[in-house]
Design a protein around this nucleic acid. Structure first.
Lengths: 239, 239
DNA sequence: CGTTTAATTGAGGAAAGTCAAGTGAAGTGG
DNA sequence: CCACTTCACTTGACTTTCCTCAATTAAACG
């Protein structure tokens, strides 16, 4: 499997984020201490999910949040026209299971084989109200996800499909560089259709954009799911 | 002034949000108790900002967060092409001043005359690490803003301009119903151009959409900034 | 190895963007 | 108080871009 974490995952849930007020090194880091992870681990059960498996559906009672250990998850909403809009792709050390008034606001599905910690809300709430340090780190993570959601909206708002796809590759690259190391190749665990639903483009437009980026010599595609940015300078100009 | 809050604002900062795990009444509520507001008030200074005033710029050192007492604020990012993308419109009891690695991620500007609490990060961090209740409510607010940002992306992803504008009116209406009461008229404190930059539409497309909604008899425009939804059933079908 | 699903590529049409002209309201100064 | 300026908005004509539909190719799976 291409997406993996090199951590020892038995220690307990962790959250990766660029701290909002932290040092200016702008690098994503694990927020929780070993001690904090251990306290969270007591509440958590480890859940393994097959690729393609739906984890929960929009509107369902939200009784737990999830923290990814390995794999990639997408969260999405159904549209009135029968389509889908993908809200986010979640990677190891990301949290998902956002709710409003006790109901999940999105549906969630595993894009790869996924391992997660499952944290019941009923157990999490009392822990949070006792443990100020954990709470603070949750705040940092939420700030991170908020920025990420704003970035998503920013990317969608671009007019040209080529810009959207290029910015998308940058986002994924940044996300993967924090967890996977060693290679400059970007792995795409999602389909062209998923990318389209994330970027508000038809899957054909996504495909054409990849082809065009390749034709321009800006990227190389080993296969449909492995992309490498060849000319960083020119690539950044597309955006 | 059309946008105002009926609260006594001397009590201290407050945050409005639909609680993620709260009761299923799905109504926005003030999160802080009077006691909590008082504790925050000690750190805060009240700042008054003229309409059009830039509060901070993207990339500037983030030394404070702001909580709105009265008025409306927009946060935005400059685009490579020299335009702007508006990330959010913020109303009373909303927080803004989101940062990454110590730098503001957006610029912020007052759309009306604005009164805010200014909370220095340096004072806020120690308070948060001591006060678990306030911290929990901050988490609730961040969840709320995260959902709002995801909703924004969802709206932008619509293909037809008419849908985008209709959904935008719904969002503003929901936001205003929580603070202003009594009237079913929607007040728009932002320009057509602002709406365009929020929805990823040209201002002409926004204008045309308003005209079309009016021509279809779905809305009535007392003037450019006061809209009323006439036929709710048909209006919802546009979306 | 054949079947099914995902991805690419092409042609035509719909939608919004851009450019440009015109309208209207608000504020300014004589 | 009224002409004048200015800015925001509207409306129209034309262009660009992407969506839709369709055919083809490539890859994954049993």
């Amino acid at each position: 499997m291409t997406v993996k974490s090199n951590r020892i995952s038995a220690r307990g849930p962790n959250l990766a984020a660029v701290p909002p007020w932290g040092p200016a090194d702008a690098r994503s880091a694990g927020l929780f201490s070993d001690e904090e992870r251990a306290r969270l681990a007591v509440l958590a059960t480890i859940v393994r999910l097959q690729k393609g498996r739906t984890i929960y559906r929009e509107g369902q009672n939200a009784d737990a949040v999830f923290v990814i250990i390995t794999g990639v998850v997408k969260t999405y909403k159904a549209t009135a026209a029968g389509g889908h809009h993908i809200a986010a792709f979640l990677y190891p050390d990301d949290v998902f299971g956002l709710s409003e008034a006790g109901k999940y606001t999105n549906s969630a599905q595993a894009l790869t084989l996924v391992t997660t910690y499952r944290l019941p809300i009923s157990a999490l709430k009392p822990l949070l109200s006792r443990d100020s340090d954990i709470e603070f780190h949750v705040i940092c993570k939420l700030c991170h996800e908020l920025r990420e959601a704003q970035r998503h909206a920013f990317v969608i708002s671009r007019r040209r499909a080529l810009s959207k796809v290029a910015m998308f590759l940058q986002m994924i690259e940044r996300h993967e560089n924090f967890s996977v190391s060693g290679t400059d190749e970007i792995y795409l665990p999602m389909s062209r259709s998923d990318i389209g639903e994330y970027l508000a483009l038809s899957l054909e437009a996504v495909s054409r954009s990849f082809s065009k980026l390749a034709a321009l010599g800006l990227i190389a595609m080993r296969d449909k799911r492995h992309v490498k940015i060849l000319d960083r300078v020119q690539f950044d100009k597309v955006i």
